[in-house]
Design a protein around this nucleic acid. Structure first.
Lengths: 241, 241
DNA sequence: ACAAAAGTGTTGAACGTACACCCATGC
DNA sequence: GCATGGGTGTACGTTCAACACTTTTGT
């Protein structure tokens, strides 16, 4: 089993081809949100090159699994993350992006509610943890550029697709929802206008429940109604914040 | 040099690796527009598998070229197309998308003004030609799915980025521009509202020239002012049709 | 009683949409 | 002179943006 990025240089081996082949990896930029900031999941590399440095979770694609299956497997192995929202981001294929071999990486973009998914390190990764997007350590390979690409995508996407809900718990308050948008978009939104707009879309189901454990008036909880969204979308509705 | 999709099965060869590797190809979905319809550039395959069948231009990525360089080389070799608008579309990596080997394909999406670029077949491709998007022949591999993905992307993209100009000649009339949007979006636009909106954006430079060779009042010619667009974009302007 | 966040409406400006006629030109 | 597309303005409805105070609850 491939055990890190160094595998597969052109020394003697059991897999021979008529023409040279690049290696193919997948990498995941998984965003999470907590009270303070937008965070990215990073691991500490346990193998060379860049041993000990921070990097995106990822690894080699096996011959019997699809690209998406490969990222999901790596996220489970390296960070204990399963069943999260993921979509393909971009494929990075510059010739010299890996110092030792030609490696093409298919990057994925993921969103997760930090509270519901405990993260842990394993296998090639010595540790997995959340890092504030605005204060990232130096990253291995071209992973800093991959994170920048993912951030631009997130900021664009969140405005016209209801993906932000993936970052929140299943039940949330309108203020939490608003803060999520403010954190990602980097600007403040008007409370009254925000509430009117999002409620009038008809995508939120108000629950007969309130926040608990807060030292002030408890807010109503809502949940995202995926069925309503899909049904509206079929009728030509376009989400937009 | 790889001469078709069949190269690189695991029989004896000069390139050996410790772990098996998928082959990596690039494919291009190039759209063009003429008076009647939106068209896609297809070649007729000159090698197995799917010999003689229609397919997207594309081929294997070489070890010394980036992904984008590979698509540009293939487009030049197989269709004589150079210097066109291209951007990455999606990477297709299902295990069984090629019947003979594991092949991962990075698809690109291109736009071209049919009139300015004469297309011709060559190398692995026996012929290259334009086909109405709505009447495509059966395509090799999963290329029909790739074209569908590209079409969805084009329809989404054209509304909020000024890429449609790539499909028109450098100098065009407002009616040509409107028809381009109508063809891609599949719905009619109001002539007066369209003109007002696009002119007020300040992205079109009116030229002191008119259409020639038409059997009615000649329309004014315009050209897209890329510098104005970039300068406005830096100030927070968002293009939208 | 006070601190903290929840919740709630109105107004003016900007924008989108619907709609019909005269004009210039080539044949 | 007629057929063809070029070019133009207005009125109405909808949406967006700005703005401040009362209510509820826990400590």
């Amino acid at each position: 089993m491939p055990s890190g990025r160094g595998a597969g240089t052109a020394r003697a081996g059991s897999f021979a081809y008529e023409y040279p082949r690049p290696a193919v990896t997948v990498d995941a930029v998984v965003f999470g949100l907590d009270e303070e900031a937008l965070k990215v999941l990073l691991i500490e590399r346990g193998v060379d090159p860049f041993l000990g440095q921070a990097a995106l979770p990822g690894g080699f694609v096996r011959m019997t699994e699809s690209l998406e299956a490969a990222v999901r497997r790596e996220l489970a192995e390296e960070a204990g993350l399963r069943d999260i929202f993921l979509e393909q981001l971009y494929t990075f294929g510059e010739v010299d992006r890996d110092p030792r071999d030609r490696i093409i990486s298919v990057a994925y973009f993921g969103l997760v509610n930090i509270r519901d998914h405990r993260v842990r390190g394993a296998t090639d990764a010595r540790a997995a943890g959340w890092h504030d997007v605005k204060r990232l350590p130096p990253l291995a390979f071209d992973h800093a550029a991959i994170v920048r690409t993912a951030l631009v995508r997130l900021q664009g996407k969140v405005r016209y697709q209801p993906v932000g809900f993936e970052l929140l718990p299943a039940k949330f308050t309108l203020t939490q929802l608003q803060h999520m948008y403010e954190t990602i978009l980097g600007r403040d939104l008007d409370k009254r206008n925000f509430r009117r707009k999002i409620l009038e879309m008809g995508l939120l189901e108000g629950l007969p429940e309130k926040q608990t454990g807060v030292a002030h008036r408890a807010a109503q909880l809502f949940r995202f109604d995926r069925e309503a969204y899909e049904s509206l979308t079929r009728r030509g509705f376009n989400f937009e914040i």
